[in-house]
Amino acid sequence: MQRAYNFNAGPSALPLPVLQKAQEEMVNYKGTGMSIMELSHRSSTFENVLNKAKDDLRTLMNIPDTHEILFLQGGASLQFSMIPMNFLGAEQVGGYVLTGAWSEKALKEAQKLGQTAVIASSKDNHYRSIPNQHELQIPDQNMAYVHITSNNTIYGTQWHEFPSLNGTDLIADMSSDILCRNVDVSKLSLIYAGAQKNLGPSGVTVVIIKKELLSRIPTGLPTMLNYETHIKNNSLYHTPPTFSIYMLSLVLEWVKQQGGLDAIEKQNEKKASLLYECMDMYNEFYTPHAEKDSRSLMNVTFTLPNKEVTSSFLQLAQEKGFVGLAGHRSVGGCRASIYNAVPLESCEALASFMESFYKGQ
């Protein structure tokens, strides 16, 4: 079977060895006579899967003991509400940095629950860049936290260095770039990420939360929307997405086999460089959406001279086996999402196709 060149933005490519391992274990997981999807989430067999996933994630990301790891449902979108519900006090202000559509959505949910402030935004330049440290305008009010979106799938921008906040808690939606590089987790009070880009299939959300935050959770929250509920029950308060957690565990094992985040980061830099260098070489034809110092390692966004040429590019690309290259409707053009599981060979093939398409015009 010929595998597609999968550049979908999410759900996205999974490592082929992971899919093959899941296929091998699908109907009889480790001699149980059952699929992982049939096992009780209360069984020791499944709890071993969950705990191994936590341990591997902690090792790979060097997550300190000061932080808990949760596997939740509801996607990153539920976290837009859970974060202010748990940590935005009545006399406090939640600070939001706007760098794209998902940060806008996070702000919109927080506004329903308390006071907020936009402390920086790149909306005026159509989200082509990430704000610099000196652009952050932190108000004098009591700041509950500052929220950022570390990578912006639609616009192809990424924080290359997280802001310094002088003691204010930093919260990051890392749905589209978690595990793509090394990050100092100790500098963040909460990280959350939907799995469907770098961690596994859709259905599970990873939350990495600093224990010190828990003392701020107010009484009276709905049980399921209280982080303490899930911490006290090891993410097993109710039936978790067992298959998604199992797949996530396999992906983490694959990342370890690749050499960990040092090796993954180098590979991602190489993949991204192939595409950005091609665009820079033919810059009168391929125009990156993101400014150079804000370019994403995960989502390479660009436009072509006009809609007709773009349509022709996408049609021919599809015929050649490239999937998911159409840009988001709010930006147009094209987007290549090159998450961890997208092999170098796919990026080489795309760069070659882009070069030949340009020369054929």
Rank of each mutant, 00 (worst) to 15 (best):
I191L: 13
I191K: 03
Y192D: 03
Y192G: 00
G194M: 02
A195K: 03
Q196S: 13
L199Q: 09
P201E: 11
S202E: 05
G203A: 02
G203N: 02
V204N: 06
V204G: 04
T205R: 02
V206G: 07
V206F: 02
I208A: 00
I208N: 04
I209A: 02
I209S: 01
I209T: 06
K210M: 07
K211H: 04
K211S: 12
K211R: 14
E212T: 08
E212D: 14
L213R: 00
L213E: 01
L213K: 00
L213W: 00
L214R: 00
L214H: 01
L214C: 06
L214Q: 04
I217K: 01
I217G: 02
I217W: 03
I217Y: 00
P218T: 02
P218L: 01
P218E: 00
T219D: 12
T219W: 05
T219R: 02
G220E: 04
L221K: 04
P222H: 10
P222L: 10
P222K: 07
T223C: 01
L225P: 01
L225I: 10
L225G: 07
L225K: 04
Y227E: 09
Y227L: 12
Y227D: 08
E228H: 06
E228Y: 06
E228I: 05
T229H: 12
H230T: 05
I231P: 12
K232Y: 13
K232T: 13
K232L: 15
K232I: 13
N233S: 15
S235N: 12
S235R: 09
L236Q: 11
Y237W: 14
Y237H: 15
Y237D: 14
H238Y: 15
P240F: 12
P240S: 06
P241L: 03
P241Y: 12
P241R: 08
P241S: 13
P241A: 05
T242I: 15
F243H: 11
F243E: 12
S244I: 12
S244N: 14
I245T: 04
Y246H: 09
M247A: 14
M247D: 11
M247Y: 06
M247C: 04
M247R: 05
L248A: 10
L248R: 10
L248Y: 13
L248V: 14
S249K: 07
S249D: 09
S249I: 05
L250N: 10
V251C: 14
V251L: 08
V251T: 14
